[in-house]
Design a binder for these strands. Structure first.
Length: 878
RNA sequence: GGAAGCGUAGCUCAGUUGGUCAGAGCGCAUGCUUCACAUGCAUGAGGUCGCGGGUUCAAGCCCCUCCGUUUCCACCA
């Protein structure tokens, strides 16, 4: 036995992980004799470093997969990484910029070369970091969203959807990021309120001094106005409808149209219409057949349609236009106005809605069965409230813009005939044009939304489009673990994709967790500088501590708070486990430890702890099966620290330090058994330290990681022993309490007088009381009168406890303390009587409950009587 | 505008189907250099379970109003 005095994870974490890997414990293969249990990892971006959010997500998944593996499932945790189209491209562009180059300078081919090089260099970084956490992924299956197999799946899906008419190309208004210079899906836009202004502009009626006032938050867009709209019911504008207005600055003629979309109560009730740069205006434009005039280019710079403003940045132009309008008298007023502005989820620049030709996925038909799957509970969100969020999104879903004007990603498998322009969508470049017979094609320049490939993740990782053994065995996966922030991006899209392409749901459960916040409840962010690096924590405290810190007490769907104090508390707990184990192992040294429970002669304490352990086994199992990891950890911790360490180990000491060699061996063996079971229960959460300790336990062969998870044993109830033990514990607590209240030093042995009819039980367990309460001698008495000298008392149900403390006894204090306890008992009696006197309660409450109240009444009446006697006696003595 | 969560001890949070349910950890106070652990042990103080109503024999738990707080969705120019 050689264990350091304190838990030091650096001594073994790396070694243990390597050992698991070498032994192939993480690998899963289709096995007809076992039931599969599958989790696919939410693939981290190759650009990313492990952050605390990953740490939480992976810790949850790892604890689940380890639990299931120990339960005997063929447990597969399938790892991989995501190419993160925009995020990675931004990195490469930055890299180029540092060299004074642009994307266009190097060209597509060179750009992709650099991207792949970057992926090779940094893409594995996050994988190594996941390993440090202890993640038991089957690394032999490591997938990448842009590797050959996944690309194959992407092409297959794209072509299929196209042929079904579910993918189409169209010129529509989309979200455009002028900084990333690409289209974005609706989900990729984040809205934030910003203080801005309402600029009220005067548009004159052609050939008249009449005018109409429109209000706008983006005055620079007036250059692209092709109408002004008013509500048809608005009496204010009755006379102006159908007339022609003169657009200031450009002096262009535009009509006044009627549209129900206009809210009469908002602004001036007249809206300038710019179909090219506003989603609603675009719709109005369609209805009224308006001209679509783009005034901005892809970089947010005003274009040739902007006249003299051409070449100006959008905000620069705003200033200039406002100034010009003021000069020309077209600016009526400026009103402060807070408005909600869309930002790119990657670069956080303000997005511009623009009209552009893009590829879309038709959502209506795909969404329907995806909604049904959740409604019918084929897929369950945990907690269930997230299904509402899901419905809300799915039921109002618009077509998904999937093309991106980027280079890093899956290039869209659409080919244009160089001769006639015919579009051919196929997995490879077509040989001849089906329309004109020409053989030259150009592939579409765009790539697909990153989320298009991640949507296929649960089946693309298992071999799709081929119908592999893996796919047949491991699909559908069992649980998807992720944060609520990517329900739309990812979860929803996997659901409709799985149903559409596999004909089956991709997973049965979706376990949603929250985000990790700092000790003040704030989101961790770069700008606040309150983020913490999980790798630094692992270095300092070990992976187990970090994992446990994130897992203990979490509940599905709720955020977790991180604080250094909490981390330290977790470290202390593991240190406690470490030291308790050290104690057990020290006492096993040189002994023939019995590994079978049946060979051990069990003491009262043994039976008590085994019975409690058995209950905990059930509790942990039930909670883990519900994915209630936080509860599993918490109840286990309570058991380990309080029952096992503070009570059981102490209860074992008399026999361990005694003379009875046989008893010593039995006690050590029982300790070993309990410890071994505890380590198994703890392993899913803190795998390293449990493995390290397990390897030292006599008779524990192999690895705890692949050992069998403890099962509830209905024959280990030991009801009587449990009750007896709790009486003993009550007595011990009473003596300790008496010592503390009278100031009697804990190191001084005292005698203990008991009046009880449970002499046998207590006498059999007297060594426990002697040790734990530091008692010299226990004496039994028929009744209180026989006891001589000054004592301090505690009246329990069935036992009266008296500690002779001589001069330390303060009658006044003792009387007031007893009176307090008397009041307590009286309150209990009152409460029980109240319930039992209630006709309704007696008539309607369950029998067991009524019996319980009756028993309580009897018990407290007895206690009350004895306390009264004790008080009377003290008062007469005083 | 729509939806959801949260409000329980000084702090952070548990609390399943209404009934041993008023809890844990931290912090605080007091006492312990006991042979696993001071990253520890023992003992203790602390709460109108946000406010007000309702349902029930019985309500942190179910229903309603309100207050405070957080988040998501939509978006009106």
């Amino acid at each position: 036995m050689d264990m350091a005095k304190t838990y030091n994870p650096k001594d073994f974490e790396e070694k243990i992980y390597k050992d698991w890997e070498d032994k192939g414990y993480f690998k899963a293969t289709p096995n007809e004799k076992k039931i599969p249990f599958t989790i696919v990892i939410p693939p981290p971006n190759i650009t990313g470093q492990l952050h605390i959010g990953h740490a939480l997500d992976e810790s949850i998944q790892d604890s689940i997969i380890r639990f299931k593996r120990m339960q005997g499932y063929e447990a597969l945790w399938l790892p991989g990484t995501d190419h993160a189209s925009i995020a990675t491209e931004v990195k490469i562009v930055d890299q180029l910029r540092a060299e004074g180059l642009s994307k266009e300078d190097v060209g597509r081919e060179e750009f992709l070369k650099r991207s792949w090089a970057w992926k090779e260099k940094y893409g594995g970084r996050i994988v190594e970091q996941l390993k440090r956490l202890g993640s038991s992924c089957d690394w032999s299956r490591l997938a990448f969203t842009m590797d050959e197999k996944r690309s194959e799946a992407v092409k297959e899906v794209f072509v299929n959807l196209y042929r079904k008419g579910l993918i189409y190309q169209g010129k529509k208004i989309i979200n455009w990021c002028p900084s990333c210079k690409t289209a974005l899906s609706d989900a990729e836009v984040e809205y934030a309120e910003e203080p801005s202004n309402f600029w009220h502009l005067k548009y004159f009626v052609k050939g008249s001094d009449d005018y109409i006032v429109v209000a706008t938050t983006r005055p620079e867009t007036m250059l692209g106005d092709t109408a002004v709209a008013v509500n048809p019911k608005d009496p204010r504008y009755k006379n102006i409808v159908g007339k022609t207005l003169i657009l200031p600055i450009l002096n262009k003629e535009i009509p006044v149209v009627c549209d129900d979309y206009v809210d009469m109560k908002f602004g001036t009730g007249a809206v300038k219409i710019i179909p090219a740069h506003d989603p609603n205006d675009f719709e109005v434009g369609l209805r009224h057949n308006l001209e679509v005039v783009r005034v901005m280019d892809d970089g947010g710079v005003m274009n040739e349609n902007a006249g003299k403003y051409c070449g100006m940045d959008r905000y620069e132009c705003r200033k200039a236009i406002v100034e010009d309008l003021k000069q020309s008298g077209n600016l009526v007023k400026i009103e402060p106005h807070v408005h909600n502005v869309g930002h790119c989820y990657r670069c956080h620049n303000t997005i511009e809605p623009i009209v552009s030709k893009q590829w879309f996925v038709k959502m209506e038909t795909l969404a329907k069965p995806a909604i049904t799957a959740v409604k019918k509970k084929s897929i369950k969100f945990i907690p269930s409230r997230f299904s509402k969020i899901y419905y809300n999104w799915m039921e109002n879903i618009k077509d998904w813009c999937i093309s991106r004007q980027l280079w890093w990603g899956h290039r869209i498998p659409a080919y244009y005939c160089e001769n006639c322009g015919e579009i051919v969508v196929d997995k490879q470049t077509p040989a001849v044009c089906p329309k004109c017979g020409n053989g030259k094609f150009v592939q579409d320049e765009d790539v697909l939304d990153t989320w298009f490939s991640s949507a296929l993740w649960p089946f693309s990782t298992l071999g799709y489009p081929e119908n592999t053994e893996d796919l047949k065995y491991f699909y559908p996966t069992d649980v998807l673990v992720t944060g609520y922030d990517i329900i739309f991006f990812w979860v929803a899209r996997m659901i409709f994709s799985g149903i559409e392409h596999m004909g089956r749901i991709p997973f049965k459960d979706v376990l949603i967790h929250g985000i990790v916040r700092d000790s003040q409840g704030r989101k961790m962010s770069k700008s606040l500088g309150n983020g913490i690096d999980p790798l630094v924590i692992i270095d300092e405290y070990g992976a187990d501590t970090l994992r446990y810190c994130l897992l203990n007490g979490i509940s599905a769907g709720n955020d977790v708070r991180y604080s250094p104090e909490k981390l330290e508390g977790c470290r202390n707990y593991i240190n406690k486990i470490w030291n308790a184990s050290r104690f057990v192992l020290m006492n096993c040294e040189g002994k023939e430890i019995k590994t079978e429970l049946s060979e051990i002669k069990l003491s009262l304490a043994d039976k008590w702890i085994i019975s409690k352990l058995n209950s905990i086994v059930r509790e942990v199992t039930v909670n883990m099966e519900k994915y209630d990891i936080g509860l599993a950890c918490a109840s286990l911790q309570d058991f380990v620290w309080s029952d096992f360490c503070d009570w059981y180990i102490e209860l074992c000491k008399p026999s361990l330090y005694g003379d009875d060699e046989k008893k010593k061996i039995d006690t050590a063996s029982a300790l070993c058994y309990v410890l071994k079971t505890i380590l198994k229960l703890l392993h899913p959460f803190i795998p390293f330290v449990t493995e390290e300790i397990y390897s030292k336990i006599p008779g524990a062969e192999g690895s705890v990681m692949v050992s069998e998870f403890p099962k509830y044993n209905s024959r280990q109830g030991y009801k009587t022993d449990r009750e007896n033990m709790s009486t003993i514990m009550e007595i011990v607590k009473s003596v300790r309490n008496i010592r503390s209240e009278t100031g009697a030093a804990p190191s001084v042995k005292v005698d203990l007088y008991l009046v009880t009819d449970r002499r046998k039980v207590i006498a059999d367990a007297k060594t426990y009381i002697e040790r734990l309460a530091n008692v010299n001698e226990i004496k039994f008495f028929e009744n209180k009168d026989e006891i001589e000298g000054k004592t301090v008392s505690k009246i329990l149900a069935g036992v009266e406890v008296y500690v002779p403390l001589g001069e330390l006894v303060d009658f006044e204090k003792e009387i007031s303390r007893l009176k307090g306890e008397l009041e307590n008992a009286e309150n209990e009696i009152k409460r029980a009587e109240g319930k039992l006197n209630n006709q309704g309660f007696v008539a309607k409450a369950p029998k067991a409950l009524i019996e319980g109240e009756r028993a309580k009444l009897v018990k407290f009446n007895e206690i009350k009587l004895k306390i009264e006697t004790a008080i009377n006696e003290l008062e007469s003595q005083n």
